[in-house]
Amino acid sequence: MDSGGGFTDLLQFIFMGLQRGSIYALVAMGFNIIYNATGIINFAQGEFVVLGGLMMVTLTMGFTFSIPFAFLITVLFVMAVGILMERFTINPVKNPTVLRLIIITIAVSIILEGSAMILWGKESHYMRHFSSDETFEILGATILPQTLWIIGILILIVIGFMLFFNFTMTGKCMRACAINRDAARLMGINDRKMVMLSFALSAGIGAVAGIIITPIIQMDFGRGTMLAIKGFGTAVVGGLGNSLGGLVAGILLGVIEALGAGYISSHYMDAIALLILLIVLFIRPSGIFGSSEASKLKEF
């Protein structure tokens, strides 16, 4: 292989990695938002992505709605699912143990997975791309326009959330709750409402991830688990609760995975990605970007 071909391959893998990584980053953001508000890791996070993707498929391919309209409806729908989940399974549980909360979110996750299987069947669903599905070339690497959509929407969401958390009252309240719930409550912040909001936002982000990736991966009901586990790994690597860290870690994981699949073995790609995540979890549970002092304060 000549050096130009090698470079082209590399560039190709990096674009693939960015595309995957954006999704992991979004799932990690979803984990972080709920974690910051509640201390809960929501094992159903991956199912939000699946629901987003499948709902979008139905709306665009079944009902032939326009993409922006279907996008909006889908996000609202999944946010509603998130709110229902919080209202009916998290909110009613008083003085829960960590073990019980873990099992509850696992239960919700398999209920959503089972429902998706019944409603949408076991097959993968094709969805049309946001714009053209004709590839074009950048420095010899072939790129789908959808990849640019994914990266663009990720950037928009990150900017949107930065503005939300730093410049709106609600966003600031959520950050306050994340830092110290008791103190926030004493200052008159309704932390129950914040918990609900965190589920809504987190579900919404999951939905967006599902919507933008479906044209490329063809969504099916069973993808939630793997998305959740990789998204969680991403969140841990980035330092649980640290959204910016999660973003960087997501992109990093995506690129490593794409390079691994390209140069080593695509069969074991997921296994290798999980192995890396496990190793980080074992060696540095506070994450690459988190401080180990701070993580000791968390109840793990």
């Binding site: 890791i41 094992f43 960590v98 073990l99 873990i102 586990i229 969680f232 790994g233 841990v236 496990l278 979890l281 074992f282 549970p285 109840e299 793990f300």
Partner: peptide, 10 residues
């Protein structure tokens, strides 16, 4: 060595 959510995910 991990607890709670971390052990579950591991």
């Amino acid at each position: 060595r991990l607890k709670g959510h971390y052990l579950a995910m591991a």
